[in-house]
Design a protein around this nucleic acid. Structure first.
Length: 461
RNA sequence: GAGGGUGUAGCUCAGUAGGUUAGAGCGACAGUUUGUGGCACUGUAGGUCGUGGGUUCGAAACCCAUCAUUCUCCCCA
């Protein structure tokens, strides 16, 4: 028997880590609920055909496929062998695999909406916090199993949805204590830029290149654009675009001068301006102290985005984005239900965790587990402890009895390891007197009180 | 898919001109006269040196393969 191990790219979460992760989840969940979003869960497995072709060629390769059962059935041997040959040719074969682990939460959501569009009331606002799986090569901060945390609105073109989602970002990170920039841009502005540099078909290569700006720098981006076949005039036009700076409105004005003659740019500029104004509320003024920033270099990889796009970056820390999203048209069209537009955002929980760990932002009380440890000094004493514990527990106080009669030393050390703050000691003399010793394990102070008094004091908690 | 790094005790790691019984710290467990912990002291347990080959009189060390893990690129969260 070899040592037990974990599949590559998966993790156990020890109790203290689970506590911290749940703190993040619950904060996000609570904000979602306050904005009228409803929870949704979908299966870990989807039909393979639901997922294939939705994430591009690269995405298809990274989908975890589930092997069919019963392949060893001798009666099916010939069929299985020919099916497997098809797999070896790179074709999918239902005879070998027809299910796969979910790759993200968006496509299963689109599948759900397409299946239930007759009964859902629109706009449908859902959030979903579940693990997803990717057969990617794990590296720092990237895993084969990880949680996604999404909120989407489908069935509405209103720009208010973008405003609300931006506000969700702002609220969540404020509550978690992480200072952030919420950056927005518009795909139609990027599309307009591409239009002036060769045509709409250049949108993807151009956005992919400029998305790398803060990672590889301006010169490398220009190199990449040249390699992809843009001429110097086009490259310098993009450079001019990337050089735009200033306040939100100043940047919009600059884009207006550069691309305003194109209808798509006009719509993008208008929507960016609208989101910003609505987000600021009725006290909006020209001051640029908002956490909502415009970032014309923001592109986002996923090419199904068509309108406003979001990205959230933690300030004062060297880490990638901790959230992203955007508007897409007609996501359910892939499943035969057209004309349902949507907009959504996602939280990068693992990175948020890393930021909070590094900045020590988790509340201290997450470490608390049991409130009271009852010492075990014998069977009769323990019976009394047990009775008291049941009463305390019914009042919401968490307590436990040391599992066996043992030396004080051992019981103290157990309490220490579990960070239990209070020990209650009931020995022979306390048992007959109806009292108990309550000891504060942090300060070492202790006092003897009536057992009834113990119940009263802790009922107040 | 491409390219690097690393695998020695539960954890973090020492350990080469190849040489006999492979070490430390932390942790664990036990004890320092069994109703008061955190400190200290003493002791105990725990390793086929990732696995399989090869070179050698001799391999934890050198070579090859393999597995695991980790990082970078691609791509993404």
């Amino acid at each position: 028997m070899s040592k037990p191990s974990l599949p590559q790219g998966t993790r156990d979460f020890a109790p203290d880590v689970v506590r911290k992760r749940q703190y993040i989840f619950q904060t996000i969940r609570s904000v979602f609920e306050r904005h009228g979003f409803l929870p949704l869960e979908t299966p870990a497995m989807e039909n393979l055909e639901t997922l294939m072709g939705k994430y591009g060629d690269e995405g298809d390769r990274l989908i975890f496929k589930v092997l069919n059962n019963g392949l060893d059935n001798p009666a099916k041997r010939e069929q299985v062998l020919s099916d497997f040959d098809r797999v070896l040719e790179g074709k999918n074969s239902k005879g070998i695999t027809e299910r796969a682990l979910r790759y993200d939460l968006t496509i299963p959501f689109a599948r759900f909406v397409a299946m239930n569009h007759g009964t859902l009331s629109f706009p449908f606002k859902r959030y979903q916090i579940q693990p997803v799986w990717r057969a990617d090569r794990p590296q720092k901060g990237r895993y084969r199993e990880f949680y996604q945390c999404d909120a989407d609105v489908v069935g509405s073109r209103s720009i208010w949805n973008e405003v609300e989602l931006a506000h969700i970002y702002s609220t969540v990170f404020r509550e978690l204590g992480i200072p952030v920039d919420i950056r927005i841009n518009h795909r139609k502005v990027l599309a307009a830029l591409a239009e002036t540099c060769g045509g709409a078909e250049w949108t993807t290569p151009i956005t992919v290149a400029i998305d790398k700006l803060d990672k590889i720098g301006l010169e490398k981006v220009k190199d990449e654009l040249r390699e992809r076949g843009l001429d110097e005039g086009q490259v310098s036009r993009i450079e001019e675009y990337l050089g735009i700076s200033g306040s939100f409105s100043e940047q919009l004005e600059a884009v207006q001068r550069l691309l305003g003659h194109l209808p798509s740019a006009q719509q993008g500029i208008f929507e960016l301006k609208s989101v910003y104004e609505l987000y600021q509320g009725e006290v909006w003024d020209q001051k640029d102290d908002s956490d909502l920033k415009i970032d014309l270099t923001l592109a986002r990889g996923l090419n199904y985005y068509t309108g406003i796009i979001f990205e959230v970056k933690a300030m004062n820390i060297q880490i990638g984005s901790i959230g992203g999203g955007g508007r897409y048209d007609d996501l359910t069209g892939l499943f035969g239900v057209p004309d349902i537009p949507g907009v959504g955002i996602s939280f990068g929980v693992d990175r948020i965790y890393d930021v909070m760990e590094e900045k020590k932002l988790f509340p201290a009380n997450l470490e608390r587990s049991t409130d009271i440890l009852f010492f075990n000094l014998g069977d009769d004493e323990s019976r009394r402890s047990f009775t008291l514990m049941q009463k305390l527990r019914s009042q919401g106080v968490s307590c436990e009895l040391f599992h066996e009669k043992a030396k004080f030393d051992k019981q103290f050390k157990y309490a220490e390891k579990k960070r239990i703050p209070v020990a209650v000691i009931i020995g022979g003399s306390e048992l007959t007197a109806g009292t108990c010793v309550v000891r504060d394990l942090n300060t070492g102070e202790q006092r003897t009180i009536e057992q009834e008094q113990l119940l009263k004091e802790y009922f107040k908690l």
